[in-house]
């Protein structure tokens, strides 16, 4: 497998949009061709080599290409957008839209990710080892369909609107979350190990959400359906006892969304 190493070579002031950093773009290209790929900064385009030192060359196909970003790229947006195969490893934090609309392959971010990681993704694996911002795996503004497939793993915390409009795939969050997780969800699975602030599963009509920790402000349109223990969703297991709710009855007469909330962590629900 061919590996291309990108090392940031200067402090970035205005944010850069680098949707060319994908195995699909790098495949079949030599070092100098990769250096000449254009990225956006404001209304201007510059070669990739203005921002990164490039080492190595792309493989024969996207599957054969691994990109390693050696440093912090928190002011670089759209890394791995629309990628279909191959691998990207970011040894730092990324800016907005990492893995946006990705369809296959794998992205590993060792630091944090800004908002919109995995927006409307349809396949592949996006693993963020730090924290993430808003709109993880969600739909774009005004769109009804968020993440459709693949797996999104966040080891740390994430903020609001996680899995908005999600129709398939899995989101697994190791830490805590804030508001409107699974808003308008119609399918797929969201598992959160930590706490949530408010509006879990608001306006959902299908799919499943599991919250292991405490939910501060519960969604009023949820109706209790008893308890269940040791949940299993194919390879994902959630041990312990959970209170089960169906909803959101605010938005539909017969919704099929399911929220599980940890029994011991939510004595008031």
């Amino acid at each position: 497998m061919a590996e291309v190493k990108l090392t940031p070579n200067k402090e970035i002031d205005l944010k850069v949009e680098a949707d060319v950093i994908t195995p699909d773009e790098f495949a079949g290209k030599g070092k100098s061709e990769i250096e000449q790929l254009l990225v956006w900064q404001g209304p201007s385009q510059y070669p990739l080599s203005d921002f990164f030192d490039v080492e190595g060359e792309g493989g024969s196909s996207a599957e054969d290409t691994t990109i390693v970003i050696n440093g912090d790229v928190s002011r670089v947006k759209l890394i791995g957008a629309k990628m279909t195969a191959g691998k990207i490893i970011v040894k730092g934090s990324t800016g907005m839209h990492v893995g946006s609309q990705m369809a296959g392959g794998e992205i590993v971010v060792e630091g944090d990710a800004d908002s919109w990681p995995g927006m409307e993704m349809t396949g592949g694996v996006l693993h963020i080892k730090g924290n993430a911002g808003d709109h993880v795996g969600s739909a774009y503004r005004g769109s009804w369909h968020g993440m459709k497939g693949g797996r999104l793993i966040i080891d740390g915390n994430a903020r609001s609107q996680i899995g908005g409009g999600m129709t398939g795939g899995e989101i697994i969050i190791g830490g805590s979350i804030e508001n409107f997780c699974g808003i308008r969800q119609t399918g797929g699975l969201i598992v959160v190990k930590g706490n949530a602030i408010r509006a879990v599963g608001a306006e959902m009509s299908g799919g499943t959400i599991v919250i292991g920790g405490n939910i501060q402000k519960f969604t009023p349109g949820m109706q209790n359906e008893g308890e269940e223990s040791d949940l299993e969703f194919e390879d994902i297991k959630c041990s312990g006892t959970f209170k089960k709710f169906r909803g959101d009855f605010a938005i539909a007469k017969n919704p099929k969304g399911i929220v599980y909330a940890g029994k011991e962590t939510n004595p008031d629900l």
């Binding site: 009023p220 959101d248 605010a250 629900l269």
Partner: peptide, 13 residues
């Protein structure tokens, strides 16, 4: 959300 739940014939949580 609670007002809509009431309109839909259910009691809010």
């Amino acid at each position: 959300n609670a007002l809509l739940t009431i309109l839909n014939g259910k009691t809010p949580h």
